[in-house]
Computed example of a mutant assay.
Amino acid sequence: MERDCCFRWEDGIFRYRAAAIIIENGCVLMAGNERADYCYSVGGGVHLGETAEDAVVREVLEETGMRYEIDRLAFIHEDFYDGDGAAIGLRCHEVAFYFLMKPRGSQKLNSHSVCSEGRESMHWIPLDELGKYKAFPAFFAEKLQNIPMQAEHIVTVE
C-alpha cells in the first residue's frame, strides 16, 4: 500500500503535496467535493519514495481521468493554516509543488474521483473570474494571470 508523505502529531499535521495548474481556453481546472464550501487545485499527497513529478501526473489522471504532461514547476508553496474536515481543530503545515501542465486543447474530462470528503467534482473556472470564488490556494487568483517563467516560492500564514 502506498503511503502519503504526511505525519500527525498532537495538535498538527504536516503534508507534502503535488498539484496541477491545468489551463484550457482561458479557464483553470479546480476540484470540489460534497462537503467543502470551496474549490481547490487538482492534486494530492506525494507517496513515500515517489517524486513530486510522478505524483502530480498520477493525481491528475486519478482525479480527471485524463493524462496530462508537465510543462514546468511554477510554484513552491508553504502553507500554514487551521485544518477543516478530517483535520478540524489541527494546525496544518503543507508544502506543495504546483506544476503547470501542458494544455491538451480540450476541457473534456472523465472524472470519477472520490476523496476523504466524498465524491469530487471538477470545475473549469475562467481565470479572470477566479477571484470571485472561494478557491485555494488563494494566490491563484492573482498569480495565474501572469505565471512566472521561474518557479516562485510563496509562504502563506492564515
Results as ranks from 00 to 15, higher is better:
Tyr40Asp: 03
Leu130Asp: 10
Gly26Trp: 11
Leu109Tyr: 15
His153Gln: 08
Gly12Met: 08
Phe75Ser: 11
His47Phe: 10
Arg3Val: 01
Ala138Thr: 02
Ala52Gln: 06
Lys143Val: 00
Gln107Met: 12
Phe75Val: 07
Ser121Pro: 01
Tyr40Cys: 04
Gly12Arg: 14
His47Ile: 03
Gly43Val: 05
Glu2Trp: 11
Phe80Thr: 13
Cys39Arg: 14
Arg67His: 06
Tyr16Met: 00
Asp37Ala: 01
Glu10Asn: 10
Gly43Cys: 01
Cys115Trp: 10
Leu127Ile: 15
Gly131Ala: 13
Phe99Tyr: 15
Ile70Trp: 14
Gln145His: 01
Asp71Leu: 15
Met66Tyr: 04
Gly83Asp: 14
Gly32Ile: 12
Met101Pro: 03
Ser111Ala: 10
Glu59Gln: 06
Lys143Tyr: 08
Ser113Val: 04
Ala135Glu: 06
His47Gln: 01
Gly105Gln: 14
Val155Phe: 09
Asp54Glu: 13
Ala138His: 04
Phe99Pro: 00
Glu152Val: 03
Glu2Ala: 04
Leu29Lys: 02
Phe14Pro: 00
Lys132Thr: 09
Leu61Pro: 00
Asp4Leu: 04
Ala74Thr: 08
Cys5Thr: 11
Ala36Asn: 08
Val42Gln: 12
Asn110Ser: 08
Ala96Val: 13
Leu29Glu: 04
Asp79Trp: 15
Glu152Gly: 07
Thr51Tyr: 11
Tyr40Met: 05
Glu50Asp: 06
Gly44Gln: 06
Val114Phe: 15
Ala31Glu: 12
Phe140Lys: 00
Asn110Gln: 15
Arg35Val: 04
Glu94Leu: 07
Ile22Pro: 09
Arg35Thr: 06
Phe139Gly: 01
Gly44Pro: 02
Gly26Thr: 03
Ala18Ser: 15
Tyr40Lys: 09
Glu129Asn: 11
Leu48Trp: 05
Thr156Cys: 01
Glu152Trp: 08
His153Phe: 09
Met1Pro: 10
Phe75Asp: 06
Phe136Pro: 02
Met101Lys: 11
